[in-house]
């Protein structure tokens, strides 16, 4: 009984995170301005990371954790670079 609850709530959580992922993707595609897209991209990477963690729970392997860690790091670096680009028009000064 309790395991069925966990399995179903895992599925529901994944669906909700997938929907959240779609919302962020819509904001990236829609804009309207560059900074909106960057915020969308940041949210996208966070939602993707949480989705990977739930996949890790579903399969019971540690591999997804590593991927989530890499995405968290890459999300930070890419958003910082994009924000810098918005500010100055170039990444490396």
């Amino acid at each position: 009984m309790s395991l069925a609850v966990l399995a179903w709530s895992l599925l529901l959580a994944q669906l909700m995170l997938g929907l959240a992922f779609c919302c962020a993707a819509w904001r990236v595609l829609r804009g309207p301005r560059a900074q909106d897209r960057v915020v969308g991209l940041d949210t996208l990477s966070i939602n993707g990371m949480l989705l990977l963690l739930t996949f890790g729970l579903r399969t019971g392997t540690d591999l997804y954790f590593e991927a989530a860690l890499v995405i968290a790091l890459l999300g930070f670096v890419s958003t910082a670079a994009l924000a810098k680009f918005l500010m100055r028009g170039e990444v490396i000064e």
């Binding site: 959580a13 909700m16 959240a20 962020a24 915020v39 969308g40 939602n47 949480l50």
Partner: peptide, 20 residues
């Protein structure tokens, strides 16, 4: 664990809905 998962995913979804 089920409650935490649902709460976390729900809050994240609420935040992302805010983007829209």
């Amino acid at each position: 664990a089920a409650a935490l998962l649902l709460a976390g995913a729900g809050l994240t979804l609420a935040g992302s809905l805010g983007l829209l």
